[in-house]
Amino acid sequence: MAVSIEQRPLAVSSRRGSPRPSVSVVLRYILITVLAILVFMPFILSFLGTFKTNPEVTAYPPTFLPREWHPENWAQTWSVEISGAGQYVFARWFFNSFWLAVVNMVTQLFFCSLAAYAFARMRFPGKDLIFAFIIASMAIPGAVTLIPGYVFFAKLGWINTYWPLIVPKLVVPFGIFMLTQFFKSIPRELEEAAYIDGASRFRTYWNVAMPLSRPALITLAIIQFQGSWNDFLGPLLYLRDAKLLTLTVGLNFFKTQYAVEWNKILVGSMFNAIPILIIFFIFNKYYMEGASYSGLAGQ
């Protein structure tokens, strides 16, 4: 479990054969570079677009670099005023998205790891059955339950509050599944020693198992932070006041209000994309591990 990609032997051993790169290798490099640029192009073009005037950003033929640079577009969008939400709506939405993602991430790390520890290390009746339920519940199509759930939350009086975005996500099956696999992969000896020394189960979990699981916890934290930060349908369903919106839904709301101001819409998109891209570039090793975990989940 959790073998990082870096440790895996490459399928094709790399430093063998002629030192001179062959034509096909050069071609491959060119092809890959072109593909990488192509994949990034939408972001490069829209990033450059954020500095253009509004007539220029929609002009034909489109310009690659702005004729004049207008960095003030960023400040203007950040502080833009929307009726019903006041000034600095983007700052507000940014903050809403951020704390919601942090709350989701922290509660999931704690409750998922707690449950996962029980599944990996302890014996109790019904364990296999409950674990099978966890795996089965991962297969329930999300959107399918989310929308009929709206009526359920309406009866609870939770519409236009953050509760539907926090409480059902306090602990998620994927997190339990992933951490159970990880806990099983680390040696028990240290925990047993602590347990025999008289530490309680909770202390063994908290002081011994958790510190050993840092890589898996970081991977899960990133996956869940990103999931919450990027979520669109959930906030769209449950949040009504413009003030309460998160960045994704706020961006869409902003588009309906400022439909023709493409330079500002692109700036707003950057507010959403740039933080997650920065997190990606810092923790990119853990992302790759997350990808192999999602591979495990389906097998």
Binding site: N230, N272, F280
Partner: peptide
């Protein structure tokens, strides 16, 4: 991989 971390919005 980078572009796929951006939100659908």
């Amino acid at each position: 991989y980078a572009p796929s971390v951006a939100s659908s919005a």
